[in-house]
Design a protein around this nucleic acid. Structure first.
Lengths: 337, 337
DNA sequence: AAATAAAGCGGAAACGTTTGCGGTCTCCAG
DNA sequence: CTGGAGACCGCAAACGTTTCCGCTTTATTT
């Protein structure tokens, strides 16, 4: 188990261990012949540099803490994938933490990450209260949020333009001939405020009257959406389309509609938001607004790297454009049904 | 950015920093009054112990490397979730690495993890060649595999009993009245060899003739399954049920069946393997064999902890039982259709 | 040919912690 | 009153690097 250290190869090479360090680090304070000799020797002896010891002196760990409410969630696992790939490409490793289910847990893991001396933190907040919850730590280490923030929050983040997403989506529905569009889902958290806002704005421009079916659920999930949609479908369906605040909710609506024998998209059109991978499944084929997860992830680590490596201070907000993914749950009313 | 160290609080408390260390570590080599005074002081000064420095001397990092082919995969992200929760509960943190797409990448990340001085590695192999690929490292650090191994491989692992899974599944189909069951999917990797084996064994016991529709795909995905199933459905459907080697494949079959207007389960029954979360979706409701991901993950970290903390040497193989999840894709032929 | 510069390398400190060893002090028993 | 046993705490080494500083050697310039 005892691994070979700098000293070992230094002794074997007959040089000081400072020299070995320089040979490996690509410093030009060393002769090219000795460098090659040493590198070859390191290879033979199976030397691998000890990051812990290096971190000790450089005061940089090359570690990025990734905290997500729960990694077994399609949105977050996709983000995690791209973030890890990108981070590793730049010499960083990812320390993964689930912050769910409550704020206490979230605070705990952030504190833990600080103890671990991570160079930066990438966090998708579990609730709008997250900012306040961990504010004590966000000024001790570079942090970027993956989610739209409250306006004027002193934090950096990258997010999709939620408001624009719902705007584009309802306009699409309008162009398909829909005039009675119901917005379904949460409204009280930041992200959902923006989404509702875009819907309202589109309605105003298009001369439609906004209609809501709200939930007080703290978390959007298929099952929550299903329960809520069952309530909804107990009443008469006097609208031709539903804009669900998230894909999870939309999936719940789909299930409830099937139960109630409401044909989608025959009788009712449905559009979601996020483009989680399940939406592309056979028999689902949900039309939705896509969050560019890959771009979000790589831009977030770029932003974080900039803070870490260049010490960039201020707060930067990166807003990405959502795109409409047309699939099979929206009917064009101009075509015969 | 300069954080407060042991020395700082030692100076403030007027004691040596060894004493502060002892106060925090709960050693009994210290007076209870001084301990409390110091702990209080640490709190006030906002001291957090530096894990990097600690690791330096204890030669333990409390880090577990988790390497998965790609985290944006439902099976792996669920495993990751439970593994992280369990590990953190025992004082470990997870360093996440995607090993895809090739063996070279996999080897690279494992080597990286060693440099990072992780205490142990949890790995879901990307192919049967993984064992050979990283053998040089697995004896340098405790490692447990999450997947069924080649028999007699000198490695520890936890896995589901794949053979038993397909056995149970085809027996279920038999009990439903099915006599012509087609096995669909890969056969050449370890896991799939076992799965095919269980199917064959059940057929023999039940007096059925095994039938295969193989693929040479290196990776089972919905789309690969779809392409293969299209070929399959170009020929006459002279069987009443399909056992798909994975849920992903099953989903592809579902899509192709819809395309070909083959009613599932009306004309054709379908069963999958893994119970990935998509299978529970509305309109899908795939009957499948469940891998107990939670148990697999926690048992894997327990096994790893045992190796790390007790220095347990040998190779232990933990085989978990799969369970049948009955949903809506298998028809009971005894009932009128 | 002498002076200066530059290149190549070694010595040693430093990073923040844990822990074995030894020292001091208190307290109680003899 | 003295001896010894604990209890409590300080000293210092050690973990494996990186990097600053300075020394020697070689090359370059005048």
């Amino acid at each position: 188990m005892k691994s070979v250290t700098l000293k070992d190869v230094a002794k074997a090479a007959g040089v000081s261990y400072a020299t070995v360090s320089r040979a490996l680090s690509g410093s030009h304070q060393i002769g090219s012949d000795t460098r090659e000799r040493i590198i070859k020797l390191c290879d033979e002896m199976g030397y691998t540099t000890n990051y812990v010891a290096r971190s000790m002196v450089t005061k940089r760990t090359g570690l990025i803490g990734l905290v997500v409410p729960s990694i077994d969630n399609q949105f977050m696992s996709e983000i995690a994938y791209y973030a890890e790939m990108s981070a590793r490409g730049h010499g960083y490793n990812i320390m993964l933490c689930n912050s769910g289910p409550d704020l206490k847990q979230e605070k705990t893991v952030v504190k833990l990450l600080l103890s671990r001396q991570v160079d930066g933190i990438l966090i998708v907040p579990q609730s709008p209260k997250t900012y306040e919850n961990i504010r004590a730590y966000t000024d001790q280490v570079p942090t970027v949020f993956l989610s739209e923030n409250l306006r004027d929050q002193p934090q950096s983040y990258v997010a999709v333009d939620n408001s624009r997403g719902t705007y584009i989506g309802t306009k699409y529905l309008y162009d398909l001939g829909h005039r009675d569009i119901l917005y379904f889902g949460r409204r009280h958290t930041t992200t959902h405020q923006f989404r509702a806002e875009g819907y309202i704005r589109a309605c105003q421009e298009l001369g439609l009257t906004p209609r809501f079916f709200n939930s007080e659920f703290t978390r959007s999930s298929i099952n929550n959406g299903y329960q809520l949609a069952k309530e909804l479908f107990a009443k008469p369906v006097d609208y031709s389309a539903i804009f669900a605040s998230t894909d999870s909710n939309a999936l719940g609506v789909l299930k409830a509609a099937d139960d109630a024998h409401i044909n989608i998209p025959g009788q009712l059109s449905l559009i979601g938001f996020d483009n989680i991978s399940s939406t592309a499944l056979p028999r689902i084929e949900l039309t939705t607004m896509e969050q560019p997860k890959r771009d979000m992830a790589v831009q977030a680590v770029d932003m974080l790297r900039d803070k870490i490596e260049n010490g960039t201070q201020g707060y930067v907000h990166q807003i990405l454009m959502p795109t409409l993914i047309k699939r099979s749950t929206c009917r064009d009313l101009h075509e015969p049904g």
